[in-house]
């Protein structure tokens, strides 16, 4: 079987070049953040660690990402369960709504969101609330896909009927039967939403800006003023991305058929 040689035109060379292209900017940035002229220095990192705004921004982003995940779960999970159980014909409508954030770039959504939520009954522009809601919207495709895939892989009807024949209500069924069964999918979707909320910049910059600085906005503001701190912040961001990605990969391995791709543009 193995005798048929696979066609690999310069396969190893392609992979080496790929690794170089991906790794050189990272190593160069690390090096840049640690050198001043010919000398080794950690001054950029020391300055950052002394800057309280860094920790405030990190805290803001973590809080924001957590709230976005919770909001997204509360919105998506019961809805999808309900549709799977009672209204399968509503599925295309939901899919349309989850496709929209893919087609419409965040910068475009920001335009309308500013108009609507700057005044009127819900003046929430400039507050964290608008970011939680708009991040829930932007990351809806990731959460929706993950939970939908997970729900499709179990027999929701039979499980629900079995639970209800034993006297369980809808909430009890969801809490003790459905959620434990699709937990890997929930974790996988939550991590994708978490990582995209952690890295989002366009909406945070345009809708809230320095009124409530998130980590990416902090990176942008500080980095523009000081190249060495910019490089140090890029390194810190990469470490955060790396940690989150490794966690996502680890959870995706435990949830077969789950996606591990999110978009951060």
């Amino acid at each position: 079987m193995r005798k048929i040689t696979q066609f690999r035109p310069g396969g190893s060379l392609v992979l080496v070049l790929f690794a170089v292209y991906m790794l050189v900017p990272l190593l160069a940035t690390l090096n840049f953040s640690l050198t001043l002229g010919e000398n080794y220095t950690t001054v950029a990192y020391e300055k950052l660690l002394r800057n309280e705004a860094l920790f405030e921004a990190l805290w803001h982003s973590l809080l924001l990402a957590t709230l976005t995940v919770l909001g997204s779960l509360i919105l998506t999970l019961p809805t999808l369960y309900w549709v799977q159980l009672k209204l399968p014909q509503a599925k295309p409508l939901l899919e349309f709504f989850t496709l929209l954030p893919f087609i419409v770039p965040p910068i475009v959504m920001a335009l309308g969101l500013i108009r609507i939520y700057s005044s009127g009954p819900f003046p929430i522009t400039g507050t964290p609330q608008i970011l939680v809601f708009s991040y829930m919207m932007v990351s809806l495709p990731f959460m929706f896909r993950a939970i939908d895939n997970a729900l499709q892989s179990i027999d929701t009807h039979t499980l629900t009927e079995a639970a209800q024949s034993l006297g369980a209500g809808t909430f009890t069924t969801l809490r003790y039967i459905i959620i434990p069964n699709i937990l890997p999918g929930i974790v996988s979707g939550s991590l994708l939403v978490f990582s995209s909320a952690l890295a989002e910049f366009a909406l945070a910059n345009l809708l809230v800006g320095s009124a409530w600085t998130t980590f990416p906005v902090f990176v942008s503001n500080v980095g523009r003023a000081d190249g060495r701190q910019a490089a140090a912040l890029a390194v810190i961001s990469f470490v955060i991305t790396w940690l989150v990605s490794i966690t996502i990969l680890w959870s995706a391995n435990r949830a077969p058929g789950q996606n591990n791709i999110s978009l951060n543009r």
Binding site: P25, T29, S195, A234
Partner: peptide, 24 residues
């Protein structure tokens, strides 16, 4: 390759721009 792709695909936006400034 898969692990490298997973990490770098998520590394975009402002930090990536700064990394390229520090490189090129």
């Amino acid at each position: 390759v898969i692990t490298l792709s997973n990490v770098t695909a998520n590394f975009a936006g402002v930090p990536l721009a700064f990394a390229f400034v520090a490189t090129l």
